[in-house]
Amino acid sequence: MKKLIFAGLCSGVFLLSSCGNAKDEASSSDVPKALEVKLTGPEEVQPNEKAAYQAAVVYGDEPVTDADEVEFEVWKEGEKSSSSQFKASKKEKGVYRFETDFKDDGLYIVQSHVTAKQQHSMPTIQVRVGDAETDSGSSGKETDEHSHHH
């Protein structure tokens, strides 16, 4: 009886120790990286003036040249329901670009939608067109409140 109990305890200790080692090895080699998107472009333009916006996409330390989807969305502040979406074209390694113009004075939002490496990021830039008044609480810089990582 003592031999049976001792054998059972040894087996249990062996199983627990081997499970713990497998977990440690998997977690150290499978550390997920974050998809990072830096959206840049002019924050002030005149009506009908061409403006170029770029999304630099990086996963870890590597530029992403094979993103699943990169689109840009533009809308006048307060009128998102009438937004326009545009497919991006690649300019250089990991940088996706698009050009647009703004017809009327006002505050606009440019947002990139990037899907790559099973993650999605949506940074934004506020653009002042012509004689539009800027919001006192907004700097016009890229906002994190509209940036999502999944």
Rank of each mutant, 00 (worst) to 15 (best):
V31I: 15
V31W: 10
P32D: 10
P32Y: 13
K33Q: 15
L35F: 11
L35T: 04
L35Y: 11
E36H: 12
K38P: 00
K38N: 11
P42F: 05
V45D: 01
V45A: 05
V45W: 04
Q46H: 12
Q46F: 12
N48A: 13
E49V: 01
K50N: 08
A51N: 01
Q54E: 13
Q54C: 04
V57L: 05
V57G: 01
V58W: 11
Y59K: 05
Y59W: 13
Y59V: 06
D61I: 08
D61H: 08
P63T: 04
T65D: 15
D66G: 05
A67K: 05
D68C: 05
E71K: 15
F72C: 03
E73R: 14
V74C: 06
W75S: 02
W75M: 07
K76L: 09
E77P: 00
E79V: 07
S81M: 11
S81P: 00
S82Q: 14
S82D: 13
S82W: 09
S83W: 07
S84C: 10
F86Y: 15
F86Q: 10
K87H: 12
A88M: 09
A88Q: 07
S89L: 14
K90M: 14
R97E: 15
F98S: 09
E99T: 07
E99V: 05
E99N: 06
D101M: 12
F102T: 00
D104E: 08
D104T: 06
D105A: 06
D105E: 01
G106V: 02
L107V: 04
Y108S: 00
I109M: 12
I109C: 05
Q111C: 07
S112C: 10
H113D: 11
A116P: 00
A116R: 05
K117V: 08
Q118K: 13
Q119H: 03
H120K: 14
H120P: 00
H120Q: 12
S121W: 09
S121Y: 10
S121V: 14
M122G: 01
I125V: 02
I125E: 00
I125F: 03
Q126R: 11
V127K: 03
V127I: 04
V129R: 03
V129I: 03
G130V: 01
E133A: 08
T134K: 14
D135P: 00
S136I: 10
G137Y: 14
S139K: 10
G140M: 03
K141Q: 10
